[in-house]
Each structure stands twice: as C-alpha cells, then as structure tokens.
Design a protein around this nucleic acid. Structure first.
Length: 917
RNA sequence: GGUCCAGUGGUGGAACUGGUAUACACGCAGCACUUAAAAUGCUGUGCCGAAAGGUAUGUGGGUUCGAUUCCCACCUGGACCACCA
C-alpha cells in the first residue's frame, strides 16, 4: 500500500511553489502551445469524463517540457451564457457569485489531478478586462460591415426567452433546455459569417492536422452547393394594378436578400434555385414556400385565396419539428389563376405552395421535377400531377443498381447455395449467364417503371426530350444549360450555402453587452475604444423579460447615455452577445493575458501562434470551431494575428460513458465523481486508468474495477523501486551516486541472470521508443500497456532473483517515461532513488538503437500458410539456413512428407512459408 | 434518407507497411498463504477435442503463398447532418 494522498499533496505543493508550471519564455527554445477547450464552470462540478482530455494534454505537455520546449498550457473559464445564468436563476444567486463559486470547484478538481496549468495565465470571459476585447473585435466587425441589424424571424426559445442561432438547435429544439423553438421576428445583430463561407471551406484542405471526420462535419455544415437560379415568368390572370403590386413586392424581396437584378425590371418572375438544371425539361410545376413574399404579392391574382390563406396559417402554426418530420405526408395548395413559364420551352406550369419547400434556403422557390426528385415525386403522386422522365440512366450505374436490388431480395444467396450443391464455382460461366439474364430482364422492367412514372431516378444519366440538349450527359448539360440561361438573361450560375449568418443577439442579462449606441440624430454609433469595456451593470433583477427585449432595457440609468458623436440623447444597445462570443478568441488571450493596450501583443502572438495541439469534444465541430475559425480569419484580415488558421492540430476526445453504457448524467444516476475516485485510488491511478480505457477518441464505458488494475500497477512499481539493487536495496541505503550495474553475486546465479538482464534492458529501451511514439500519436492506451509490460517483466525478474539489479539510473529511465502519466508517484520515486531535481526538469530519454536490436528472434515456419513451428534463430539468418532449420523441425517434417515444395517465401527475421503440393 | 466511423474472447481492448490473431487490463477458475475472510502471490483461461489436430476477427464472395488488415456486396451498431431542391 502507498499513501497516495500524502504523496500527491506534497508534490502538488512543491510544483506550484517552485513555479514548475510557469510558461517558459526562453527565446532560444522552440515553443509548443497545447490547448484544452476551456469549460463552462457549471454548478454540478466535474464528472470523471471531463478531465479525460485534460489528462491527455497534460501528458503531452509534460513530455514537451522534458524535451526542452517552452510550453504554453493554460486553462480558463467560459463563464458567460445561458447555462450559467439559468443555474444562477434557479439557485437564486447572482450569476457573478455562482460563477465564482463554480470556478473555485472546477479549479480545485483540476488541481487535484495534478494537471500542469499555468494559472498565472488564467482567463475568464466574464472579466471586464477580458470582454473589453471581445467587444473590441465586435466593433471592428461592425466597422467593416460584418455585423448588421436585421428584423428577420429567428429561432426563439420560449423557455430561455431568447433568440438563438441555428447552431444552438438540436433537432429543432433548444440545445440548452430542450424546448421546441418558435420562429419570431425580432430586431437582432447578425454576423456575416457567410462572407467567409468559401474560405472556411477551402482552407479545411490545408488543415492536415485535423481529423477527417471533423472536417467533414464542417463541410456538411457549410453545405456549399453549386447550381443555377432560373427565372420563371409569372402569367397571372389579374389586372394590371395587381400585377404592379406583385412586382413591387417581389423586387423588395430581391433587394432585401441583395441579389443582383439580372432581369428586366418590368418582368414578373419566380426565381428558383436548383442544382439540377439538366432536368428542367421534366419540370411540370413550381412550388413556393408558404412564407415566400411572392405569395402575398400575388393575392389579387389567386382565385382560391381563402384555401391558400388557410394553408399558410396552418404552416405557420406548425413547429419546426412538425414541419421537418420526414414521415409526414407532403401537403400543398395550388395557386389557381397563376402560372409560371419555363424559359427553356415556354411551357406554362402550375404553381403551388407547400411546406416541404423551405423559405430560408435558396430563393424559397423550386422547380418541381417529379421524375428525378423524390420529394417532388411524392408530391406529384399524391396530387396526380404530371411526371415526365427526361434523364435516362446510363448503363453501368443502372446495372449496379439492379444488381443490388437482386441481392436485397436474397436471390444471390439462393443461387450460391444451388451452385455449392452442384460443386459449382463463383466464376462459373453458368452463373454469369444467369446474372446477365437477370440483369437484362430486371433492367428492362425497371426502365419501364421509370418510363411509366412508377419510380423516380435521381442520379445523373443521359438527357432525352430536352431539345438541343438531348443526348448530353447530366454534367455537360448542366454546364451548357447554365450558359444558355446567362446568354438569354433568364438565370445564372449560383452557389448556395446551408450556413446562415450568425444571429449574434441574446435577450438575456449574462453576456457581453454589445458596445453600440442608438442616437436619435446619428443612428447607430460605436462606443469609442477608450470607453471600452461597456460593463454589465450590477443589478438585483436580471430575469429575462420574454418580450424580445433584454432585461438590460429596464435599467434606465444604464441605457440612457450621450451620443459619442453629437453629444445628444442616446440609448445603449441592450442585447448581449451569445455564449460563443468569448470563446472565439480566448486562445489568443492566453498568450498575453494582462495586456490592456491590445488583445494580444504582436510579437508574442507571432512567437506562440498558432495553437499546436487542440483537444476537445466533437460536439464543438460545427459551433465553436467554425465560429473561432471565422473570427480568426477576420482578425488575420485586419492584421491582428499572423496566421490564417488558429489550430494546427485537432484531436477530439471520446466520451466516458456510465457503467451502464449510457451518457453520464444525473438523470440516469450513473455519474462517477472524480473526487471519490481520487480519494480512494489516487490521482495517478485515475489518470492512468482513463488513458488505458481505450483509444482516446472513442467512447468507452466506465468500470471502477479497471481503476483497481491501474492502482495495482502503481503499487507494483513501488515494489520494484524497493527491490532495486542488493542486498539491501537503493531505497534503504539512499546511495548518493546511482548504482550502474549489478552487484557481485556468486558465479552460478550471475551466469544464469546475465542474458535475462540484457533482455530486460533491451525491453526498457523498446519501451522508451514505444511510449515516446505513442504519446506523439495519442495512442495513450497502448503506451500505458507498454509500461505495464515492462513492469511485469521487471517484477518477474525480481521474483526469480530476489532483487532487481538494474541500477537506479536505468530504473530512472522507466520513471521518466512513466512520469507524464503518473507524475506524483514518478516524482516521489525519482527523489527516493537519489535525484535532487524534479523529474520534469530532467531530459526525456532517448532509446539506444543498438540495444533494441534483437540478436535472437522467433522465426515463424508455415507450411501452406499455416503455422507449424516457431524456431529460435539468429536475427540475420539467411533464407537457405532458415529453410534448412525449418526442414529439420520434426513437426514441419511431418507436414512436408511426401509433398513437393513449390516455393518458399521468406521474410527476414520473421517468417518462412513453405508452399507444397 | 445522406455522410463519416466502427464490428475481434465473458468485458474494455491490442495487432507496425498484408506475415505467430486475442498483447495489456478486468472478470472467472484452481492453488499457495490464513482458524477464516480480505489482501497478496502463482497457474490457467477464444471455441471443439483426451490428444494429435481442427476451427475462429459481423455475413457472403474476391485478390494473395499468406487477409482482422486490401477490394466488392450485405447485415448490425454509433456519431453528425437531415424535405438544403
């Protein structure tokens, strides 16, 4: 047994007092910036899952320190935002007080684990000295026109009483509280992230250090799609007056979305967006989103207005969740008296409104091609609309599709069974013929289905019935048809994004005030830089109002102010920033946390940027990580930072699940508290176990029994240290100079032990190599396993010999590679074996490449690929010698008997495969 | 539905570039120590078989002297997105 509590406390105190964790600034050394995603200090404190990432970064940070880097490894608190405020409201304390208390808990828990953070660089997003610069960045964006005021309907959470960005939703529900989100028109500030969409997308290619999965998520989120906008002229049955009105409104809409007007202004059009111009000759109707402004504008021309109005009303009352439910049947209403003209063939088609078309994407209008789009197909079938196939599948792809369908039906399995019975072979010509026939028949049937409009074909193919474009492939047709549109001025190439501009206002108290002033004379005016930060007023009541106004609006002596421009009466902006604001740039502030002249000193920024290694949860892939990249690129554009991307390498941490394999949560009662684990088993055991559980980025279920294994390993290490040297052990004698070699023994034992000792030393160096490489690749589970193997080998030796005569210096190498994982115990034993300075001031060991070369290896001998013998041979044995040795083996002989050797395959030092007939 | 990732003992998982499948740990069983238990140590532990041997990495097929690894199809699970035209 060892007293982990005593040891861990002792070293945590010494490390803090000696300034071990302080960031090195020696300009001669290379830098390494290793960052964790900083946490929200919630009221619940940490559970064992939270520190998994922190432990891993700590391991890398400690290794880098020992490798002689200046290491920047900071920690801070993302304390603004809804969770903190909701917690404060519930517990009836001021958010500032709640935050303070929660930070203290988090900090105590983090320190308890022996994490090597430089607390002198601690930051807190709610600190006015910090959010001064968050506000400063916002103002710079506003100056550049990247922050704009909008009144569009946005996501509104009725329970949190605030507007939300798209990124704050989960399946149409508020990510925080789970309430269904409503659409509410609201005055708000919006950041024009879409202006950066292409760069955010394109620069992903340069991020080699990022996991592909996270990059893919970002690509999907940005959702770039190339297509065309096409103008369908409206043929309305109404009078001139009404048509003018429609025109007016539609122009207004175009203006609002800032689309360049490419059509003659007299024309009345429906603009649709599509990625499949090639299917346009199959367009049999056009669909508008119910909210599309055009619908109201066309009212006078619509003959069945009551029905249309009723449908719009129903759609409005549906929640997002109901509307996007894929299982629901498609619904819609025709606009009687309105037709739209397809510019390619001048055919006038019906116009519908249907809520399967989203107003927020593209133009809020689509051309419907039921033969080649599943949604249109479904709608057309329901309402009995015309389906016109104009793209013919090309053969190879089509055949594959048919083939897949036949397999689905189990036909292939049956066929295989039949063939097996007959002793048939997979490449049997009979079978091939069978499949060819089958494909031919089914292809014919399926094509008939498409032609008969019984099924729809959504892939590319060849065009038919498409005038001069007939016969082209889909992709060529798209190019030529887009060019045709541009030439005839009735459409253009267009790129759309799923990414929306970032709704940046929250109608809540606990956030950074937006540093703008509304002046009656001058309009919106920026708070001058010298007046930053705009401090959050200290108030007793900060409950959200629910009216769409921020609670700040009620604090009149804070709201009323003088205009910085004209000095006249003015009011402060009362919206606050969302939680993600402060976290968009915090990694820059750690570099220079107390600077009151700039958000970061340029020289320091140049030295430390970018972050070399960033670790955090995958749930941030499409929020924080996109926002932060956006802000960083902006800061790069205004010359505030020196690199275009903030994070060179990114690794996501896999969740630790509860013992029941569910997410750890109060709800399931499966939360494991790290305080209890550390008290019972020690921080070192907890660290080791969390790294050992499985691959770092994989979710794994917690098992407290596994922690016992880690603890046992540490106790074994102590036992080894105590058995060092003989007869009385280094620990007992505290020799001043570490012993180098084995003490003399009687000749017979010595002879017996010598080669084993050499093997042990080779293993030590192999372990140094493996642990070093594993830390680099973040294969921390196998690094721990390698350390265990070495300890087991040393223990076995000790058990046989009664002691461990490898000397304190060599044992010290083991302690060094163990130290990032179990820093307290490694440091303690390092001291015990006679070292005066901290193990973390020592130099990370290099393995001896001579020592790890095996002289004797196990050579695998196979006959026809099956293992028949393993031979102990010299590592550099030749093929001929190996073959001779193999043939000499009794078991191998047995398998070669009466057989003819066709060939042999020899992998030097590893394997000999004898192929016989 | 789309995209990505994964599927190996009773459990978590290992296997470098195609070369001894199941390292390491948990669990379990037996033994030692003990009056006893706990703790500790030792031994065993994929499956079938007394053994020789056979067989096994979700399923079916392919490439190869040799496949957990590469290719094709399918099944299952997870993550993210989801009526994005």
């Amino acid at each position: 047994m060892y007293n982990h509590q005593e040891i861990e406390k002792k070293w945590q105190k010494i490390w803090t007092e000696s300034g071990l964790y302080r960031t090195g600034e020696d300009p001669k050394k290379p830098k390494y910036y290793i960052l964790d995603m900083f946490p929200y200090p919630s009221g619940a404190g940490l559970h064992v899952g939270h520190p998994k990432g922190y432990i891993a970064t700590d391991i890398l940070a400690r290794r880098r320190l020992m490798q002689g880097y200046n290491v920047l490894h900071p920690m801070g608190w993302d304390a603004f935002g809804l969770p903190a405020e909701n917690y404060a409201l519930k517990n009836k304390v001021h958010p500032r007080e709640a935050t303070k208390k929660n930070v203290a808990t988090f900090k105590r828990q983090v320190n308890m684990l022996g994490l090597s953070y430089d607390w002198e660089r601690e930051i807190n997003t709610t600190d006015p000295e910090y959010y001064k610069w968050t506000q400063w960045i916002f103002l710079k964006m506003w100056e550049q026109g990247l922050a704009y005021e909008s009144h569009e309907p946005i996501n509104w959470c009725p329970s949190c009483k605030t507007g939300l960005a798209n990124e704050d939703l989960e399946n149409g529900k508020c990510e925080r509280c789970g309430s269904e989100v409503e659409q509410k028109p609201l005055r708000q500030w919006v950041l024009k992230i879409t202006k950066y969409a292409d760069r955010l997308l394109d620069d992903l290619e340069k991020l080699d250090g990022w996991e592909e999965s996270i990059k893919e998520m970002q690509r999907n989120w940005i959702g770039r799609s190339e297509g065309a906008e096409i103008d369908f002229k409206i043929q309305a049955s109404g009078e001139d007056k009404t048509e003018n009105k429609a025109e007016e409104r539609s122009e207004k809409k175009n203006k609002a979305t800032e689309k360049p007007e490419i059509v003659k202004s007299k024309d009345k059009i429906i603009k649709v967006f599509t990625t499949r111009v090639d299917t346009i000759f199959g367009c049999t109707y056009v669909v508008l989103a119910p909210e599309n402004n055009l619908v109201a504008a066309l009212k006078p021309a619509i003959k069945n207005w009551p029905a249309v109005e009723k449908y719009i009303e129903t759609a409005k009352n549906k929640t997002d969740l109901q509307r996007t439910d894929l299982n629901k049947e498609k619904t819609g209403v025709i606009l009687e008296g309105v037709k739209a003209v397809n510019p390619f063939n001048n055919e006038a088609v019906d116009v519908f409104i249907a809520d399967y078309v989203l107003n927020s994407y593209g133009t809020g209008a689509v051309m419907a091609v039921p033969a080649h789009d599943e949604r249109d197909f479904e709608f057309a079938r329901k309402y009995g609309l015309e389906i016109k196939a104009v793209v013919i599948p090309d053969r190879p792809e089509f055949s594959q599709w048919i083939f897949k369908k036949s397999q689905d039906s189990g036909v292939r399995l049956e066929m295989n069974k039949k063939l097996a019975e007959k002793g048939g072979h997979p490449d049997n010509p009979e079978e091939e013929k069978f499949w060819q026939n089958k494909i031919d028949i089914e292809e014919k049937e399926e094509w008939e289905n498409i032609a008969d409009n019984k099924t729809c074909w959504i892939k590319d193919g060849f065009l038919r019935d498409s005038k001069e474009f007939t016969g082209l492939t889909s992709s060529t047709a798209r190019q030529q048809m887009t060019a045709w549109l541009e030439k005839n001025k009735c459409g253009a190439k267009k790129i759309n994004y799923k990414l929306k501009d970032w709704v940046f206002s929250r109608q809540r108290y606990w956030g950074e005030p937006i540093p703008l002033i509304h002046c009656e004379q001058c309009g919106v005016v920026a708070v001058p830089e010298k007046d930053l930060p705009v401090r959050l007023p200290e108030v007793k009541s900060y409950e959200p109002t629910g009216t769409g106004e921020s609670p700040l609006a009620a604090i009149t002596d804070w709201v009323n102010t003088a205009c910085p421009k004209c000095g006249g009466p003015a009011k402060r902006e009362t919206n606050t920033m969302p939680q993600w604001g402060g976290s968009c740039w915090y990694y820059l502030r750690y570099i220079d946390p107390r600077n009151d002249q700039a958000l970061v000193d340029k020289k320091k920024e140049k030295y430390w940027s970018p972050v070399d290694f960033y670790v955090g949860g995958a749930e941030h892939a499409t929020r924080h990580l996109i926002y932060a990249r956006f802000w960083h690129k902006f800061l790069y554009d205004i010359g505030a930072v020196s690199h275009e991307e903030p994070f060179t390498k990114l690794k996501h941490v896999g969740l630790i699940m509860g013992e029941d394999s569910r997410k750890m949560s109060k709800r399931w009662g499966n939360v494991i508290n790290p305080d209890d684990m550390v008290e019972q088993f020690g921080a070192d055991a907890l660290r080791l176990y969390e790294m050992f559980m499985g691959p770092f980025d994989q979710a794994t279920a917690w098992n407290t029994k596994g922690l016992i294994g880690a603890r046992k390993f540490l106790e074994k290490v102590i036992g080894l240290a105590e058995a060092l040297s003989e007869p009385d052990g280094v620990l007992a004698t505290q020799k001043s100079a570490p012993a180098e070699e084995a003490a003399p023994e009687d000749a017979s034992t010595k002879e017996k032990i010598k080669p084993e000792l050499r093997k042990l030393e080779a293993l030590l160096h192999k372990t140094i190599k493996k642990v070093s490489a594993d830390i680099e690749s973040f294969a921390l589970n196998t690094a721990v396993s390698a350390l265990m193997i070495l300890a087991n080998e040393m223990a076995e030796y000790r058990n046989k010999a009664g002691n461990l005569p490898i000397g304190a210096a060599k044992f010290g190498l083991f302690l060094q590679i163990l130290s990032p994982f179990a820093p307290h115990l490694a440091e303690e034993l390092w001291e015990k074996i006679g070292n005066k300075e901290s193990i973390f001031k020592s130099v990370w060991p290099e393995y001896d490449s001579e020592l790890i070369k095996d002289e004797i290896v196990n050579l695998v001998v196979q006959v026809n690929g099956k293992l028949r013998a393993t031979l102990e041979v010299a590592a550099d044995i030749s093929e001929a010698d190996a073959l001779a040795a193999g043939r000499g083996n009794d078991n191998v002989k047995k398998w070669l008997e009466g057989k003819e050797i066709i060939k042999t395959i020899f992998v030097p030092g590893k394997l000999l495969n004898i192929v016989v007939k």
